[in-house]
């Protein structure tokens, strides 16, 4: 655990020596990287406790939702890294080693270990954006150092990965929503998610005019 803590601190500090060792000895950093990602996923779920509360989710269902969130986060991270890998390999005309890139991707979740702080009312949302920016910076710096690329190349490759993810999210909007909803229902036992925005839309409110008829 002490080793994971040390690696976490070095990742957050964008330590170039650490990212260089990702390329030379990726196997040694795989376990700490996975633990960091797990901590980040758990912390993210703690930050989202409001949504779960709104949906009356507790006990085993809460645990299922936590695991589900961790899996989704890992899948998204792997897809983004894979896209970055494809783009970089095509542009450089030689396949980059995948494992170091995967570890950089897992490392980039390090700032999200503080995601529980996003539960802070109002300021939490701003903190969430800061963590995301920090996370992206880790990917860029990590890719640059791990593969000894210039900063702008690393930025270009990672940006391509990010853009691809955004496009994918928009193009696959409907099927992803359907799958997400099915998985959510399986994990939590609730057919739909009620968010604060749903409440704001006024959907559950019965108009007074209807209810007042015959009352007074």
């Amino acid at each position: 655990m002490a080793e994971v803590w040390l690696v976490l601190k070095r990742v957050l500090g964008l330590d170039p020596a650490l990212f260089a060792s990702v390329y030379t000895d990726p196997g040694a950093l795989l376990v700490p990287a996975l633990v960091i990602a797990l901590v980040a996923a758990a912390s993210t779920m703690l930050g989202h406790v409001a949504i779960l509360k709104l949906n009356h989710i507790g006990g085993l269902r809460l645990l299922s939702a936590l695991v589900l969130s961790a899996v989704v986060m890992a899948v998204l991270q792997v897809v983004e890294v894979a896209v970055t890998w494809v783009v970089a390999s095509v542009v450089l005309r030689e396949p980059l080693p995948l494992l170091p890139l995967l570890i950089v991707g897992l490392f980039s979740t390090a700032p999200l270990a503080l995601n529980f702080l996003t539960a802070i009312p109002h300021f939490g949302l701003m903190l969430g954006r800061v963590w995301q920016a920090w996370s992206y910076l880790i990917v860029v710096v990590g890719v640059a150092h791990a593969f000894q690329l210039k900063f702008w190349w690393a930025l270009g490759f990672t940006l391509a990965g990010w853009v691809a993810m955004q496009l994918l999210a928009r193009l696959m909007h409907r099927p992803l929503n359907w799958v997400g909803s099915r998985i959510w229902t399986l994990a939590t036992g609730r057919p739909t998610m009620v968010t604060a925005q749903d409440i704001l839309s006024g959907a559950p409110i019965v108009p007074v005019v209807q209810r007042t008829e015959g009352h007074r």
């Binding site: 009312p121 109002h122 939490g124 949302l125 604060a196 409440i199």
Partner: peptide, 17 residues
């Protein structure tokens, strides 16, 4: 803290309703 809750789009609506 309750003012912050109210102003947060995640929590505000439940508080405000």
């Amino acid at each position: 803290t309750q003012v912050l809750v109210s102003s947060d789009p995640r929590y505000g609506p439940t508080q405000s309703i």
